[in-house]
Design a protein around this nucleic acid. Structure first.
Length: 211
DNA sequence: CGTATTTGACCAGCGC
DNA sequence: GCGCTGGTCAAATACG
């Protein structure tokens, strides 16, 4: 399929339809099938399983198919050219797109995945997370609002100015009992129009919105 | 009154 | 060992 025809239409911003969506939790096998998962360092990251759980905004749901495309085209996700430094970890950047639904439903989100070129701090954090069986995934989304509805209830537990960004970083924890998923939200230091949301862990419960 | 947010303090890891 | 930094805690406060 033609990537360009499925990408986010120019000018379409998340806030245009963010008010009504609540997101289910998606499992994301296409990345594994595409063979794009984090080589060559996977061998030392056993906890980062290829089956990723990704929160996507509806109207994407089970009746639609999803694909991942490299963001900037050419070179592939591992060989460079489209890598982005996300909080100390160099991440491959993908654009999520879908088929089977109208263009306005295309999620205006970007998906990052580790590509193995991390600095020491990011590398260690990733290894620690892997050892705990946790997963980490980030989105870069153009949005006027920092906290986007994703179907889960979050409780804010911290806010901090960090050296790596002029913008404040907000810390949230899933409100569900026994669920240790956390997320960090901060504006892109290079383009404040974008919000970087990083999820840690996988929910062990269905979305409240789905029940 | 219950729940969520704010915010300064505290802690652990890392580099020097 | 010390200082810096990022992440978390918890008391105070705000809000519905």
């Amino acid at each position: 399929m033609a990537a360009s025809s499925l990408g986010r239409p120019a000018g379409l911003e998340l806030e245009a339809y963010s008010s009504s969506f609540s997101a289910p939790l998606y499992s994301f096998p296409p990345l594994m099938e595409a063979g794009n998962f984090c080589p060559p360092d996977d061998a030392v990251l056993p906890g980062f399983a290829p089956e990723l759980d990704v929160v996507l905004p509806p109207p994407l749901d089970d009746q639609y198919s999803l694909t991942l495309e490299t963001f900037s085209g050419g070179g592939g996700p591992v060989t460079g050219g489209n890598n982005h430094d996300l909080d100390g970890m160099v991440m491959d950047m993908y654009r999520m797109s879908g088929s089977g639904f109208p263009l306005p439903a295309t999620p205006p989100s970007y998906y990052y995945h580790c590509c193995g070129n991390h600095n020491n701090a990011g590398r260690k954090e990733e290894l620690d997370a892997a050892a705990r069986g946790h997963r980490r995934i980030g989105f870069r989304t153009r949005s006027a609002v920092e906290v986007m509805e994703d179907g889960f209830r979050w409780r804010k537990y911290g806010k901090k100015a960090v050296k790596s960004s002029p913008n404040l970083r907000n810390y949230y924890r899933c409100s569900a009992p026994g669920c240790g998923v956390k997320k960090r939200v901060e504006r892109d230091r290079h383009d404040p129009a974008y919000v970087i949301t990083t999820y840690h862990g996988v929910h062990n419960h269905p979305t409240p919105a789905a029940s």
